[in-house]
Each structure stands twice: as C-alpha cells, then as structure tokens.
C-alpha cells in the first residue's frame, strides 16, 4: 500500500503550468451545472413527479454529479501505454499493473475533485440549489468507492478492447467519452429517460458508475439494492478483466507490452 499512496502523491503534484487549463475545465463544469439548473426548474412538475423525482432532488443530483464528476468516469492512461508500446516499461515497475495505473489516476483526479466539489458547492449556493440529499452520506461514500472500482474495471475493459481492435485508441476513447456521461446517468437521471430507456440502462454496469451513488445520496430508500448491484458488477467486471487480460496477453506483447 505504501507504493500505491506514494504513486498517488507523485501523480497529484501536477505542473503549475496546467493550473489555468484545470480552472477553465472547472469553469465549464460550473456552466454546465448552471444550464442544467435552468432546465430542471423549467420541467413540468406533474410529469416530473410521475418519474418519482422532485425538482429539489433533481437539483441536488446534478450538483453532486458535477461536484464528484471526475470520479464517476475514471480513466487511466493504460490505453495510451498500450497504444504507444510503453506498457513494456510499466511492466518492469515493482508494482502490479492495476495498482500502478489506479494509483496514478486517483492521484491526478482526487485533488481536482476536491477543488471542483468546493467550487460546485459555492455555485450551488449561488443558484439556490439544496445540497442535502434524502439518503445517507456514509452510504454515499461507500457507493462512490464501489463506483470507482466499477469505473476502473470498465476502463480496463476498454483498454483491452483497443488491443482487440488493433489499437483504435482514439476512436474507442472518443466513443467512450461521448456515451458514458449520458448512459451512466451522470448528466440526466436515468428515470427521466423516455421509452423505458432508463430501465434498460439501469441494469448495465455504466449505471453502477454514476447513477448508483447519486441515487444513494438523493433517494430515501433503495440504497441496499443499489449497493448490492454495484458490488455484483464490480465482481463480474473484474473477473472478466482477469480472464480477458490473460486471453489477450499475446496481443498485448505483440503491440509492445
């Protein structure tokens, strides 16, 4: 664990020159949050109630989604290292592959998330958005940890997919980035989706990455089911990663790893 936290610390020390771009990125999140606040307040209340949501819960949901946003879709640099062949060097590190990429990623995004959470909380106060959910904060933390575990597994699945697709890294990452925020429920709650789309998405692993923890915090009931679902997905996905990684070993070696 010492190596894990040491890598996190090193990764957390970002270059000072990156600060302005992080601030601009954070500004984008505040703008997106503001736009969503306006939309949620404009939705017809009766139709919203039919979805089992209140405007207040919806506003809290969006505030939380923006505040912890980077943790809801964790992305390591594994695909890049597979693509450019530098995974071979990483395999010589005195740490497991999962451990080094996870610690590096967490070190990079945890400080940003903390700063982002503070800024979004300030914006929420400015926009009169309630930050207190109906659920338990401690269960939310547990659910968020499970979401990160599931998210990491999904990241490894996508990395192995790039191996199978012959290094289509840019394309796979673009599709992933484009789709994940919507189908995971990070942008709009799955229960607001039409034509039973939300019900289908609810059973997919992407829901365990964002919709799960956000619902645990904003809903007064159903936390146990959501946590169990997240834990089940974590076990299934990581078992799949281990199996697929073993099966793809020759291809990874062929691509430089």
């Amino acid at each position: 664990m010492h190596a894990f936290f040491a890598t996190m610390r090193i990764s957390a020390a970002m270059p000072v020159s990156d600060t302005p771009f992080r601030i601009i990125g954070l500004g984008l999140r505040v703008l997106q949050f503001g736009v969503l606040v306006g939309i949620w307040r404009s939705l017809p209340a009766d139709r919203l109630a039919a979805s089992g949501l209140t405007v207040s819960a919806l506003l809290t949901y969006s505030a939380l989604a923006q505040a912890v946003g980077p943790l809801l879709n964790p992305q390591t640099s594994l695909t890049e290292h597979i693509a450019n062949g530098s995974l071979a060097v990483r395999m010589l590190w005195p740490m497991g592959v999962v451990s080094q990429f996870a610690s590096e990623m967490l070190g990079a995004i945890v400080p940003i998330t903390l700063v982002g959470a503070a800024v979004i909380s300030g914006a929420a106060l400015l926009f009169h958005v309630p930050l207190t959910g109906a659920g338990s904060p401690s269960l939310f933390v547990l659910s968020l940890l499970l979401a990160i575990v599931v998210g990491l597994a999904v990241d490894f699945w996508f990395a192995l997919l790039t191996v199978r697709l012959g290094n289509g890294i840019w394309f796979v990452n673009a599709i992933r980035a484009a789709c994940t925020s919507v189908i995971s429920g990070a942008l709009i709650p799955l229960s607001l989706m039409p034509w039973h789309v939300g019900r289908v998405l609810q059973v997919l692993p992407f829901a365990a990455m964002a919709s799960g923890p956000l619902r645990v915090y904003t809903q007064s009931s159903g936390a146990a089911t959501l946590l169990a679902s997240q834990a089940a997905w974590a076990i299934v996905l990581w078992a799949g990663v281990v199996w697929w990684a073993a099966k793809s070993r020759d291809k990874v070696v062929g691509q430089g790893g």
Binding site: L31, Q32, G34, V35, V37, G38, R41, L126, F127
Partner: peptide
Amino acid sequence: DLSAYPLDAAPRAVLSTL
C-alpha cells in the same frame, strides 16, 4: 456540450457568460 440547450431559465451569471 452546451450549444443545444434552451438557456431561458439559466441563472443570470451563466446566461451572461454564454
């Protein structure tokens, strides 16, 4: 991310920026 949203009810500071 932001070009296809109705901004009528967005908070004033956000609307001014956009």
